[in-house]
């Protein structure tokens, strides 16, 4: 938007909303919305507490392991599916099912199988992230420019050369795109897992604050979570843009 001849930065309206929040809080309209300034004061106190740091560490740990598994398993499966037709036909229906299935329903199963701990949350996270990573890696392989491969062959590239110097780079934009969406899904997965398990990480904190009506603490944690998720996704789309230049010129 343009105001007084200047273009306002895209996300600057969030400041307006912060102001609205502050005003509503100051007016004391509802118990559930404390002034934003007080939430931030609480936030700075909170992030120094051991409880918060533990929750963050547990969550980050489960998140990173979960994402790690889905990347390490998902990308090779996707590439193999793109290259092998039988494998593709066998696996694709399941990938398509799980990519749109309400995976929340599986969490109770994971809880009885793997207990009420980090293991369940890691698996939930991986389940949320892996399918889109597989699907994008597969799509990347399928749409490699044929003439690029023929070019490699005509100049006498060995299969190994062809894989590392052509295939991998040609598929990279799609793979990164898949990883980005996968990671955003993983953030949701890790939180949903913790909410349902509810004795680990932020799930436990939410439970504690909600049952004791500690609204400032609750909002503070939410803001940290949303902020982290947003920063992460912004950083990932920045990375993706860096490789997008050749994705568009293929």
């Amino acid at each position: 938007m343009i105001l007084f001849g200047r273009k306002l930065p895209a996300m600057s309206s969030l400041l307006v909303w912060a102001l609205v929040w502050e005003v509503i809080g100051q007016l004391d309209l509802t118990f559930f919305i404390p002034p934003l300034s007080q939430v931030f004061v609480t936030l700075f106190g909170l992030i120094q507490t051991a409880a918060f740091q533990n929750a963050l560490a547990t969550t980050a740990y489960a998140f990173l392991i979960g994402v790690g598994f889905s990347v390490v398993i998902g990308i090779p499966i996707g590439i193999l599916m793109g290259k092998t037709r039988v494998l593709d036909e066998l696996l694709l229906p399941w990938v398509n099912i799980f990519i749109s299935a309400p995976l929340t329903a599986l969490v109770p199963v994971l809880m009885v199988l793997f207990g009420f701990g980090t293991k369940t949350i890691v698996i939930t996270t991986a389940l949320f992230a892996i399918w889109i990573i597989i699907l994008n890696a597969r799509a990347g392989v399928l749409q490699i420019n044929r003439s690029l491969i023929e070019m490699g062959r005509s100049f006498g590239a060995s299969p190994l050369d062809a894989f590392f110097k052509i295939y991998l780079w040609a598929v990279l934009p799609e793979i990164l795109g898949g990883v980005r969406i996968g990671i955003i899904r993983a953030v949701k997965g890790v939180i949903i897992g913790q909410l349902l398990v509810s004795i680990v990480g932020f799930g436990a904190l939410f439970e504690l604050y909600a049952s004791n009506f500690l609204m400032k603490e609750f909002w503070a944690v939410l803001i940290v979570l949303f902020g982290l998720a947003f920063t992460l996704s912004g950083f990932l789309s920045y990375l993706e843009r860096k490789v997008a230049f050749y994705a568009s010129s293929r």
Partner: peptide
Amino acid sequence: TAPLAALIPILVMV
């Protein structure tokens, strides 16, 4: 992008 599921406890309170 945010994990909105975290809003559930608040929705329940309200």
